[in-house]
Structure formats: C-alpha cells, structure tokens
C-alpha cells in the first residue's frame, strides 16, 4: 500500500520534466564536444522566438543552427570561432549577452553610472545636512543682543 503510494508519487513528480529540444539525432557522439555545444547554444538567441536560446527552442532555424554549431566544433573550431561564425551571419543580436562595444557602452555602463550618481547625490545631501546641524558658539555681538533682549523681556517692555 505504502509502496504503491510512494511509487505513484515518484512517477507523478518525475513525469512533468520539461521535454528537451535537442533531439538525439543532433547530438554528437563525443560527450566533451556535445557538452561544449550545449553550453554555447545556451548563449545563442533563437532568431524566430527571440527571447529563447537555441538550446531550448523547437524552431526549425534553431535546430539548423544547433547542427551547424556542432559541425563547426567537429571541424575543430574553438568556442569563439564557432560563435563568430554564426555572429557573422546573424549579427550581435544572436548573442543573448550583448558584447561590450561602442554601441552598447550606454547599456553596460548606465547602471554603474546611475549608481555612482545616486551615491554621490545621496552622500552630498547627508553631508550637507550634518554640517547644518553642527552647533557653533554665538559671536560676542549676538550674546550682547540676546542679553539685551532678555533684559527687555524681564522688565516687561515689549515693543
């Protein structure tokens, strides 16, 4: 009874595993090359489905690109060469992580710049406030004025 329950629970939890897009006939026999191909394809954008990598996409073009990528690796390309081969055809857009170059400086540096600006403004405000709250002794003339004022108050001469 308990065994059946555990078994069905395990099955129920095991079945909804996500189906893999990479089909067995695409895979390379060499596990090292295949692992490299999987890793690279996770960083390449599927040009049909846009925000999906080609490793998890079922689109036809994604499949073609996976096969092409594996061919390049088998031909002896380094990871970078294989990516550059696809990049030459589809542009920087095919990379899910945009590279740092003239066009993307704003993209990469804006968060740091904004953070620094925020820290700067915040720091300046805090320091500015602290300075104002500092208590300094009154000058001699001010002391005189206050004494006179208090004297007037006491004598009831308010004017």
């Amino acid at each position: 009874m308990l065994r059946n329950f555990v078994l069905s629970l395990v099955l129920a939890l095991a079945l909804p595993l996500p189906a893999l897009a990479v089909e067995p006939d695409e895979m390379l026999d060499d596990p090292v090359l295949e692992a490299r191909a999987r890793e690279i394809s996770k960083g390449l954008r599927c040009v049909v489905c846009l925000n999906q990598d080609i490793d998890s996409s079922n689109a036809g073009v994604a499949r073609d690109l996976r096969i092409l990528l594996r061919e390049r690796l088998v031909a002896g390309d380094s990871d970078k060469e294989a990516v550059d081969f696809i990049r030459a055809r589809y542009g920087d857009y095919v990379l899910l992580k945009p590279p740092l170059n003239g066009k993307t400086y704003v993209l990469w540096l804006a968060p740091v710049a904004l953070l620094l600006a925020a820290l700067g403004i915040g720091g300046a405000t805090v320091i500015g406030r602290r300075k104002k709250s500092e208590v300094t002794a009154l000058s001699d003339t001010e002391e005189q004025e206050i004494k006179q004022f208090i004297k007037q108050q006491k004598s009831g001469d308010i004017s």
Binding site: V47, V48, V61, D64, L68, R89, Y90
Partner: peptide, 13 residues
C-alpha cells in the same frame, strides 16, 4: 533543401 543557404542569408523565417 538543407536550409544552409538560408543561414548564410541570416534568415529568421
């Protein structure tokens, strides 16, 4: 047939 020329052209569909 293979779609390889399509990749050369940067085809997305």
């Amino acid at each position: 047939l293979s779609g390889r020329a399509g990749i050369e052209w940067g085809l997305s569909g």
